[in-house]
Design a protein around this nucleic acid. Structure first.
Lengths: 159, 159
DNA sequence: TATTGTTATACTCTATAACTATA
DNA sequence: TATAGTTATAGAGTATAACAATA
């Protein structure tokens, strides 16, 4: 990773001690590494983090509507449209008209979609095992719990 | 945050159980919430996460060179140039020619830059205290340690 | 009047190739 | 020939306004 020449590297010992006190600094860095690696792992399947998440949610929730899906994944509906276009074009999902509400579409995965989702899950499980090698189950659960506590709050509110 | 109408919300109980097994899913979500909140907090100072990080690093490491800074923050040098342009235009930092290597610039913060960095640090400390309210010091340290363990590795390698 | 899906658009973040001026 | 900084550009990711069809 170190692309810089040796002379430059040790001109001054670079310190990020001030930034390193902040959780946000570490979260951003770690998240970037995790998502980059995950994207590399599922790229041969023609998937990215976001497209996999959408596909997997459709597989797990047959008949889901686009608005529900956008809400669940916290993405804007206009952005979801483009992702679904790509999945539908590859015949991984279908958009089926809902008879009782002709504005809406029921999302369903095809067999190919379910198979691709399963294959991606296997690849991602291996990726996570590699990235978190050496982390105990207890520590992993602590991290999951703390991350889950991070909620959108009004700045200034002490809730 | 729930912008969806009630009818739609409970048509089908939406499950993300499969995705939720993955650390990457939670990290991405939590990081997005953290960075959005932090950006909102320092936006009145004309700063964002990345511009604050750069400014703070220059404050903490007088004489730093652009390549060192890009390496330390893991950002591409072309992207750093634009950020430094903005900070220099606001007289928060200066780019000083290095006599011994006329290709390089030594980065230094101005008084205004140091003051703005200090003010931003205070705001970010409050933001972190709010976002992590209820998280014990022990759990916070565990999260920091685990996040720090997430390293760029070659996919396929078991290192 | 409100909601579903859509189009168009814009801004941020990240990434790469290629240039200049120095070394 | 290699490095420091730069320019230009492109691709993701995210966000908002406004529209047509339907409720």
């Amino acid at each position: 990773m170190a692309r810089r020449a040796k002379q430059t590297q040790d001109l001054v010992p670079v310190s990020d001690a001030s930034l390193a006190r902040f959780m946000g600094y570490h979260m951003k860095r770690a998240q970037h590494v995790m998502i980059s690696d995950m994207n590399a792992v599922i790229q041969p399947m023609g998937l990215r983090m976001i497209t996999f998440s959408v596909l997997n949610m459709v597989v797990e929730n047959p008949g889901l509507r686009q608005s529900q899906l956008a809400d669940a994944l916290v993405i804007e509906r206009p952005n979801l449209v483009v992702i679904l276009d790509g999945l539908e074009e590859r015949d991984l999902i279908s958009r089926d008209r809902v008879p009782t509400d002709r504005r809406a579409y029921a999302l369903n995965a095809t067999l190919a979609g379910r198979q691709l989702s399963d294959a991606a899950i296997c690849a991602i499980e291996a990726h996570e095992a590699r990235m978190l090698a050496g982390v105990s189950d207890e520590d992993r659960n602590t991290v999951l719990r703390v991350l889950g506590q991070v909620r959108r709050t009004k700045p200034g509110a002490e809730q």
